[in-house]
């Protein structure tokens, strides 16, 4: 089966529909599916619900889909870096469902693993627990959280072979594997598609079974907080 597509537009063709739920990989601007976000901007799909740890910045990442008002609702743990997000949220134009970061990651992983719900102690006794079932195990309270089953996952890896076996680089892995797992269809963008057989099977981070469509492209990989230390002078 052919998984490699020529562009984000080609890979997204026939997959997008208004009102869909999209899970996106990335943490901050690190490891985000830049090319596929641009592709969805170009496609103009509306009323999206996007499960993503963050919401990009005003002019990059998911911020581009906020600027075009294509997102109806975000499921995130932290959205502090985006002024347009705040404007839309405070004016009631954008819905926001806060998820603790680990709960969001586990909701994606669980959905991908066929688990519709799980109990966690994260958020017990907080606003996050409101309206959720509480169950006591061995004297400790846990709340029920739901697995996420996304219509589409958009993720970014470093390298993949033609079958979608993927390798991530450093902390750019983050939400990409769990997001990929929870998509009924997963489209992955990579910096390099390598010949099948050239990746060590023991070092595959995400097996190709989770990846349905694959594109290669050039990434900006913007740095959000450039912090450095001074070299000690002799």
């Amino acid at each position: 089966m052919k998984k490699i597509y020529g562009s984000a537009a080609e890979a997204l063709d026939g997959v997008l529909f208004d009102g869909m739920l999209i899970a996106a990989g990335g943490f901050g601007l690190c490891g985000i599916p830049e090319l596929l976000i641009d592709g969805i901007v170009a496609a103009g799909t509306k009323d999206l619900t996007v499960a993503s740890n963050n919401a990009g910045v005003d002019d990059f990442g998911l911020g581009k889909l906020l600027a075009t008002r294509q997102i109806k609702k975000m499921m995130s743990s932290y959205v502090g870096e985006n002024a347009e997000f705040m404007r839309q949220y405070l004016s009631g134009e954008l819905e926001l469902e806060f998820n603790p970061q680990g709960t969001l990651a586990e909701r994606m992983r669980a959905g991908g693993a066929g688990i519709p719900g799980f109990y966690t102690k994260t958020g017990v006794g907080t606003v996050i627990a409101e309206g959720k079932e509480v169950k006591t195990f061995d004297g400790q309270d846990y709340i029920l959280e739901r697995g996420i089953f996304a219509d589409l996952a958009i993720v970014k890896a470093w390298k993949a072979d033609a079958t979608g076996n993927a390798v991530f680089r450093k902390t750019a892995r983050n939400f990409n594997p769990p997001a990929a797992m929870c998509g009924r269809i997963c489209i992955m963008e990579v910096e390099e598609i390598v010949p099948t057989g050239s990746l060590d099977p023991d070092t595959i981070h995400l097996p190709g079974i989770y990846v349905h469509r694959l594109i290669q492209g050039t990434h900006e990989k913007r740095i959000e907080q450039r912090t450095v230390r001074q070299r000690e002078t002799a």
Binding site: R169, N176, I223, T227
Partner: peptide, 27 residues
């Protein structure tokens, strides 16, 4: 750009560094 901390600051790795995904991290 692929190596940041939870505050989104650029950082470095050490000889004993290990990387993993967010679900494993919160696991």
């Amino acid at each position: 750009a692929d190596l940041i901390n939870a505050g989104k600051q650029t950082i470095t790795e050490l000889p004993h560094t290990a990387y993993f995904d967010s679900a494993a991290s919160f696991g």
